[in-house]
Design a protein around this nucleic acid. Structure first.
Lengths: 130, 130
DNA sequence: CCTGCAAATGAAAAGAATTTTCAATTAATA
DNA sequence: TATTAATTGAAAATTCTTTTCATTTGCAGG
């Protein structure tokens, strides 16, 4: 999603597209899986409080996704559906698009439970760390 | 895993099986997916600091698992391999054992990346909330 | 069954992280 | 361009977590 599309989404939901909000969004977009600290460093002109509030807002709008991979919160641009490969050696995070799930046959799924989304994290050791 | 087995595991790793540690472990075991607050309520005789330290220890020993399902940290007894079905309506959490993953064919997996574990959370709406 | 000692505990303090408050500013509509 | 409600940011408040350190205790060895 481009910047203008994001502006549209923000305005479309009745919020203002302020420079601070766009700066935070761009900071998140600059690199996937950043911590709050990393994001803050990329938009130092935006006050801390506003960063917190904006990440909440953008998460609520579905523009940004909050991750928890074991170390505090991280954020990523919510563009495509993907999962994470996390190396326990170096902490590196890789994304992969291919979705190895087959929900058919799950007990409740398809019956009572209506699936909206899912998240999958795979932990292990990457080639370099082995 | 029974209580004695847990005591064995704690002692076996060179730690003391104190009443506080057992109380925290039992508190976690009383109900899956409890928040810190919930656990604390089940062992009010144990100091807050000790609860924090004990959960760290038990996680490290692999007796307890820390979850993050969107709202702060939750804890569960690390017994069997299972995944979570999370209802976004009522917040209810259901476990399911069946593992709908087929990792074969994943790009890096099986090649460079050595998988140790994975976690899968499925979000949606349960029957009651529909 | 005692004893000694390193490990563990808990209270208080320190330190982080996050949220609230509120006056001043600003985006967007008419 | 004027108006207005939303937004911002600084400070304060609150909440969460960790550190410190004196006291207590589990448990291995005698």
């Amino acid at each position: 999603m481009g910047l203008e599309a994001a502006v549209g989404r923000i305005r479309g939901c009745g919020y203002k597209a302020t420079p601070q909000r766009l700066a935070v969004l761009e900071a998140v977009a600059a690199k996937q899986h950043q911590s709050l600290e990393g994001i803050r460093a990329r938009c130092p002109e935006v006050g801390m409080v506003t960063v917190y509030r904006t990440l909440d807002l953008l998460s609520g709008l579905g523009l940004v996704r909050r991750l928890d991979l074991g170390d505090g919160s991280r954020y990523e641009l919510a563009e495509d559906h993907h999962h994470h490969l996390i190396c326990e050696g170096c902490g590196g995070i890789t994304e992969f698009e291919q979705c190895p799930l087959d929900m058919r046959g799950l007990p409740d799924v398809g019956g009572d439970f209506e699936v909206r989304a899912h998240s999958l994290e795979v932990y292990g050791t990457c080639g370099d760390c082995r």
